[in-house]
């Protein structure tokens, strides 16, 4: 699987702006609108996130995250990953979602390129999670369409969307509490299993084959996110950070083309956020496309290749972290418009 990976690395690197990490001086630092914005500090690793790593850098990223390359290999997808560079993998086309009279999402269009980390940000109530739910089939868009690899997934059943290759985690952790960490991951792996109920009843050869590979891959995935030692612990007994990681492992287990993370850093301290950033980069390096919804600006700016900004259900910006950061509409969305007399 390492060979196809190389080709993908040839994507045009986003321009590496040395000033990217600095807070623009025009932006007042103490914005009451969103405390997270004050977090915009120097990027922890500006090279690694704006450039797509080649093989050597990949090894470095993996080492940084404390993950053995072999482990990453074992945890990686078993299916052949198509590697056309920069091709659109998900297209959200003019999607509108209405709840009665309320328009939660108004004519939003954006796309995700294969192999990139796309950030979806916006103030509270901007429609981030609604956009997410419209994509993953929780809500059916009132109008518009969602395409996964050119095929419409609008209105499909949720488990079919997952099997088509779109996996997600939850903002509020939703693990299967009475199952162990490993069993949680194996539920995700089952999305690719084909044993029928009668087959399981009489234990067909396929059942044995799938069960065995499930345990092996499940353990590898847990090792990949760094909680293999807790494989046999009930997931509700896991510490908070491990639960978040388990959610990611479970979503990865469904072998997605696109992994959607809904505020994965909620409740994390800065050190944990750094570890999470490393993990997200490793996931991308392993051949997954990542859509990230996050409040924490430092994390979003540090890890995303491109950022889409929503406000009041409308898209107001779309571009590289540097572009988005300099965008006047984004600044005013987060910090409010300056008063006329103050200007």
């Amino acid at each position: 699987m390492s060979e196809p990976r190389d080709e993908k690395r040839e994507r045009v690197p986003v321009e590496n702006d040395p000033n990217l990490g600095a807070v623009p001086e025009s932006v007042p630092n103490e914005g009451p609108a969103d405390a997270d914005l004050t977090d915009i500090g120097p990027d922890p690793t500006p090279e690694a996130d704006t450039d797509v790593p080649d093989e050597a850098e990949l090894a470095e990223v993996l080492a940084e995250a404390g993950i053995d390359e072999e482990v990453a290999e074992a945890a990686a997808s078993e299916r052949e990953i198509a590697v056309e560079v920069g091709e659109k993998i998900i297209e959200v086309k003019a999607v509108t979602v209405k709840f009665g009279g309320l328009t939660a999402l108004d004519d939003v269009t954006f796309h995700i390129n294969r192999g990139e980390i796309l950030g979806l940000i916006g103030p509270n109530g901007a429609g981030k999670t609604t956009a997410f739910n419209a994509m993953t089939g929780v809500y059916k868009p009132t109008s518009g369409d969602v395409l996964l690899e050119g095929k419409s997934i609008k209105g499909k059943k949720q488990h079919r969307i997952t099997r088509a290759g779109l996996a997600r985690t939850f903002q509020n952790i939703r693990l299967f509490g009475e199952m162990t960490a490993l069993e949680n991951v194996v539920v995700g792996l089952d999305a690719r299993h084909k044993t029928s109920v009668p087959g399981a009843l009489v234990r067909s050869p396929r059942h044995y084959r799938e069960e065995k590979s499930a345990v092996e891959r499940g353990i590898a995935l847990l090792e990949f996110v760094g909680i293999a030692e807790s494989a046999n612990t009930l997931s509700r007994h896991l510490p908070y950070g491990s639960q978040r990681r388990l959610e990611i492992a479970r979503a990865l287990a469904t072998d997605p083309k696109v992994l959607c993370l809904d505020e994965p850093a909620a409740g994390f301290n800065p050190a944990e956020k750094d570890q999470l950033m490393d993990l997200i980069r490793t996931i991308r390096a392993d051949g997954y496309t990542v859509l990230l919804i996050e409040h924490d600006m430092r994390l979003v700016m540090g890890v995303c290749d491109r950022i889409v900004v929503l406000e009041f259900g409308k898209k107001i910006a779309d571009g590289s972290p540097a572009e988005v950061r300099a965008d006047q509409r984004v600044i005013s969305a987060y910090l409010g418009e300056p008063d006329d007399d103050a200007a």
Binding site: E178, R192, E211
Partner: peptide, 26 residues
């Protein structure tokens, strides 16, 4: 036999959180 297979896991997952199970491809 059913319990120790994807069927049993699907059942327990549904019991624990039906929406999450559906989204995990069950």
């Amino acid at each position: 036999n059913l319990e120790r297979s994807r069927v049993g896991r699907a059942w327990i997952a549904i019991r624990e959180d039906e929406d999450a199970a559906e989204i995990m491809g069950v």
